[in-house]
Design a protein around this nucleic acid. Structure first.
Length: 455
DNA sequence: CTAGGGTTACTG
DNA sequence: CAGTAACCCTAG
């Protein structure tokens, strides 16, 4: 049985070679790996995924997720703000993931896929990012891109401009730049490092060596033993090795618990951004997906150890609905609810009827939430389910408190109907999740009915 | 999901 | 109490 420590090095070495993805996958499955994986190996796996996306070339929401996870990994490792190249790659990929729907429009698509993508990526994902601890990824470029996407929703000229721009090349280039920088920062694979160390010792040992394989083996064993004595399970040659990989500032004062965090931060924490989300059948990869090896989600790294035997963590997209807008999912602050199912726009069925309002929360919706910025877009917490027998239900089911439509809501609805036509209530609501956060699609429809009655 | 009829709450 | 806006119910 191979030492998991050694298999980590082998895997690292292979992942960083231009080997075929299938081979990397085979090894990932076949080798006994330490659990939890080291941060270094996690990052290498994520970088490999990016590299695979580049070579296909296919940038998708999973590319975005890989970048987010790398940022999170580095942040947990105590690194400072994400590098410019990481933030630039994130912004460029986010733009590409949106604008490709303009390029790939079919005849019967009137731009809905693009609008969905803007909502999904910019109104939800990037908005969540801005509020989260990962705000370091929220670069000025990303802010500007968001402004442009919002403009594109209402301005056809901007959409035409976006369609003509080669955002795919820009994103591929940005990811390539980041990958090169990350590779450089990471240094050579540890096996190479080890081989070099052995060679150097060999060269400097002078006489008394017979040059046999047995002797080489002895040297290697001594080197490994010395690593073991130092308690460095990952067997890294020196303390700076992993620091350099994760972008840790070696000169920065070491936090007392940093080492502990490093060791205890298991994959559940690192890759928790996906956990619990995307459970519905309409889930697609643009929605943040639940860990699922079959979907080759980067977060699946968490479950590599236990799932290797029954599923394949592939670097190759095997044909998920990449790019299909699917469900409009909006996650909350994923850092605040790690491990818990994440609410989404779809979690609240606005047409559900067996609910009643929590009067207190209506009166003071934010009183019980010290930090409203961490809250989700929709007031799902204001409702609670009633599960009484049908005959008793009508006694308890209350109507929502009447709330007069504001002029902003009215104006937004008017413009949205002009733009998207009558009858697309759900879509209109999804285009303005904040403005219509207290309204259902039916409310929009009813309001429009009232508005045209007045004319 | 939407349309359209029904119900409720509010206002003058 | 009538008119109206907001909200609910349900067939298709």
């Amino acid at each position: 049985m191979l030492d998991p420590r050694i298999t980590s090095w082998i895997l690292e070495f292979v992942l960083r070679q231009p080997a075929e993805d299938w081979m990397a996958n085979e090894l990932l499955f076949a080798l006994p790996l330490p659990s939890p994986l080291s941060p270094r190996l996690k990052k290498i796996l994520l970088l490999r995924r990016l590299s695979s996306d580049l070579s296909r070339p296919s940038l998708s929401a999973r590319t975005l997720l890989s970048l987010e996870l790398i940022e999170e990994l580095e942040r947990y490792a105590g690194a400072g703000a994400p590098s410019n190249s990481l933030a630039a790659a994130y912004a460029a990929v986010a733009v590409e993931c949106t604008t490709r729907f303009l390029r790939e429009r079919s005849d019967d698509d009137h731009g809905e896929d693009f609008f969905d993508a803007v909502n999904r990526i910019w109104n939800c994902r990037v908005a969540d990012l801005e509020r989260s601890e990962a705000a370091g990824l929220f670069s000025p470029a990303l802010r500007e891109a968001r402004r442009e996407m919002e403009e594109a929703i209402v301005n056809p000229v901007v959409r035409v401009g976006l369609t003509g721009r080669d955002t795919k090349k820009a994103a591929l280039d940005a990811v390539r730049v980041y990958l090169e920088e990350a590779e450089k920062e990471m240094g050579p694979p540890y096996l190479e490092h080890l081989a070099k160390a052995v060679c150097e010792e060999w060269m400097s040992s002078g006489t008394g060596r017979d040059g046999s394989v047995v002797e080489l083996y002895e040297m290697l064993r001594n080197l490994l033993a010395s690593q073991g004595e130092r308690g460095r399970y990952e067997g890294l040659p020196d303390d700076n090795y992993e620091d350099s990989v994760l972008g840790r500032d070696k000169d920065a004062p070491e936090q007392d618990n940093m080492e502990e965090n490093q060791n205890q931060m298991d994959l559940k924490l690192v890759f928790s951004v996906n956990e619990g989300a995307g459970k519905g059948p309409n889930n697609d990869d643009d929605a943040i997906a639940r860990p699922n090896l079959m979907n080759q989600d980067p977060s699946d790294l968490e479950h590599v150890e236990e799932n290797r035997e029954r599923a394949s963590l592939s670097f190759v997209d095997k044909g998920t609905k990449d790019g299909n807008p699917g469900t409009t999912t909006c996650v909350g602050d994923k850092r605040d609810c790690a491990g818990a199912p994440k609410p989404s726009l779809m979690d609240w069925n606005p047409t559900a009827r067996t609910f009643e309002w929590d009067e207190d929360s209506i009166e003071s919706p934010s009183e019980n939430s010290p930090d409203p910025s961490n809250k989700l877009h929709l007031p799902s917490a204001k409702r609670r389910e009633i599960s009484l027998p049908l005959e008793d239900n009508k006694t308890f089911v209350k109507r929502r408190r009447k709330k007069k439509w504001s002029s902003l809501e009215e104006e937004t609805l008017r413009k949205a109907v002009e733009r998207h036509g009558v009858g697309n209530w759900k879509f209109i609501k999804s285009c303005h999740p904040e403005i219509f956060k207290d309204r259902t699609e039916v409310d929009l429809k009813d309001k429009w009915r009232n508005m045209i009655r007045c004319i």
